[in-house]
Computed example of a mutant assay.
Amino acid sequence: MPPLRGFARNLHKDFDAVTAGLTLPYSSGMVGGHVNQVKFLKRQGYGRADFDLLRRRVLLTP
């Protein structure tokens, strides 16, 4: 199957990154959570607010 072959080839190209991602104890969970929160705030103000209000809400949200 060509799609699976391409996926495997790209995994092999990034073998060091894949190995590090599966073996190291580091996580990007906190960063992902903050990005999700900013996206949520952005969607809430879509079409109603400008960048200044979005910036203020991001900075003041606990």
Rank of each mutant, 00 (worst) to 15 (best):
M1S: 14
M1L: 09
M1E: 10
P2V: 03
P2R: 10
P3V: 08
P3K: 10
R5D: 13
R5S: 14
G6V: 08
G6W: 04
A8W: 13
A8H: 08
A8V: 13
R9G: 08
R9F: 12
R9M: 06
N10S: 12
N10Y: 08
L11K: 05
H12P: 00
K13C: 06
D16Y: 10
D16W: 07
D16G: 06
D16R: 15
D16P: 00
A17L: 14
V18T: 04
T19P: 00
G21K: 00
G21V: 00
T23S: 14
T23G: 00
L24T: 15
L24G: 07
P25F: 03
P25L: 03
Y26M: 02
Y26H: 03
S28D: 06
S28L: 03
G29P: 03
G29N: 11
M30F: 11
M30C: 03
V31R: 07
V31L: 10
V31Y: 00
G32V: 01
G32C: 09
G32D: 13
H34I: 11
H34V: 15
V35Y: 04
N36G: 10
N36I: 02
N36Q: 14
Q37D: 11
Q37S: 14
V38H: 03
K39Y: 02
L41G: 04
L41W: 03
K42D: 01
R43S: 12
Q44I: 07
G45I: 05
Y46W: 11
Y46K: 15
G47F: 02
G47T: 07
G47Q: 11
G47W: 05
R48H: 12
D50N: 15
D52C: 02
D52F: 10
L53E: 07
L53T: 09
L54F: 05
L54P: 04
L54E: 02
R55Y: 05
R55E: 04
R55T: 01
R56Q: 08
R56D: 06
R56E: 11
V58Y: 01
L59Q: 11
L59R: 13
L59S: 03
P62Q: 06
